[in-house]
């Protein structure tokens, strides 16, 4: 199960089982989407599957996630999503009403993000062999900008912008799934990121790399980027926005918000001279109103992420080995 957590085991699965078998220049980009040469345009292609319990949670549902997820993965490759496919795997006995609500939600999300859902497929599996609905979406988009945006473009001195406060999605889903009860209601951060990205590009910001934060949270995303770029990243704990209710819930649950999932947040690596422009543009967008400068890429070559905490101590961030395991003796 841990192989899907987005932590270390996912990485192992990818590098030991998948990449060696499907050896080509594009899979090795190790990014959420692949940029492909196609005539005059450059196509960007991505796919994602959505599995979540519960199907409806505060602030969203699986349908929205399925559209936003793929649109966001394309946006992280600086591509404008154009066409989507959608494949549904339904569990026998799923109320039609539920299916209808999910589809409606997908339609609204597609409309909102300007993407066309052009092909699809439906399969039904026996009762008990699925969690209601699984959705896979694939998407094709067109590069918005001439500049490639990828982990390999990360340079020392780059500043790291985080688009907003972290951890809402993971906590909202967990709270509604488990029936946890926190002081203030919490909504998932699930949101489309394409308009924020296009605003940055239209505004003339030089972008080196974009990454949406999903499973594994901010920490895992940064560790992955440090490893693929081969550079050391430093972040300041005090600069990372965490909402009060997420903080409270994490304290109760014993979770570290840095590792909690998000569905509408991203980090942008921009050169020093672009950072002020980028944050002023982001601040004007819906998803970026609470954006923050959280750290930078250093000139050290060890591929690691250090978090400077409020005491002034540096902690090394790691991928989680499967679930969070206590270390203290």
């Amino acid at each position: 199960l841990g192989h899907g957590s987005g932590g270390e085991m996912t990485q192992q699965l990818l590098s030991t089982y998948i990449q060696p078998l499907f050896n080509n220049a594009w899979i090795d980009q190790a990014h959420d989407s692949a940029t492909l040469p196609w005539g005059a345009d450059r196509l960007v292609f991505t796919t994602d599957s959505f599995v979540i319990t519960p199907l409806f949670f505060p602030g969203g549902d699986i349908g929205k996630l399925a559209i936003y997820g793929t649109v966001n993965d394309l946006a992280m490759g600086a591509a404008e999503a154009k066409f989507l496919s959608c494949s549904l795997i339904l569990e026998e006995g799923l109320p039609l009403e539920t299916l209808k609500k999910v589809l409606q939600s997908m339609a609204v999300a597609a409309e909102e993000t300007g993407v066309k859902l052009v092909t699809g497929d439906t399969k039904v599996v026996e009762r008990g062999k699925g969690d209601g609905i699984y959705i896979n979406t694939s998407g094709v988009g067109i590069l918005m900008d001439g500049q490639p945006i990828a982990p390999s473009r990360i340079r020392s001195g780059d500043q790291i912008l985080l688009s907003g406060d972290i951890g809402r999605h993971g906590i909202a889903v967990m709270a509604s799934r488990e029936g946890l009860d926190f002081e203030s209601a919490l909504n998932s951060d699930c949101a489309p990121l394409n308009s924020a990205v296009s605003a940055l590009i239209r505004g003339g910001v030089t972008l080196h790399c974009l990454r949406d934060l999903t499973r594994g949270g901010l920490a895992t995303a940064l560790v992955e980027l440090a490893e693929t770029s081969g550079r050391a990243i430093e972040v300041e704990e005090s600069q990372i926005p965490v909402g009060e209710s997420v903080q409270g819930a994490c304290e109760m649950l014993g979770l570290d918000p840095l590792y909690v999932a998000n569905e509408g947040r991203f980090v942008a690596f921009v050169p020093e001279e672009s950072v002020d422009l980028a944050s002023s543009i982001l601040r004007e967008t819906q998803v970026g109103s609470s954006c923050a400068k959280i750290g930078r890429v250093t000139d050290k070559t060890d591929a690691q992420v250090t978090l400077r905490n409020n005491l002034g101590c540096d902690r090394l961030l790691q991928r989680l080995p499967g679930e969070q395991l206590p270390r203290i003796c």
């Binding site: 967990m174 488990e178 029936g179 946890l180 009860d181 109760m252 649950l253 969070q324 395991l325």
Partner: peptide
């Protein structure tokens, strides 16, 4: 409210690993 959430965590096995620790 902490006790309510603790029960939920314990019953739902949410981040509640088992231990055999004398510490």
């Amino acid at each position: 409210s902490e006790r309510r959430n603790l029960i939920t965590m314990l019953e739902g096995e949410v981040n509640s690993p088992l231990c055999s620790s004398v510490g």
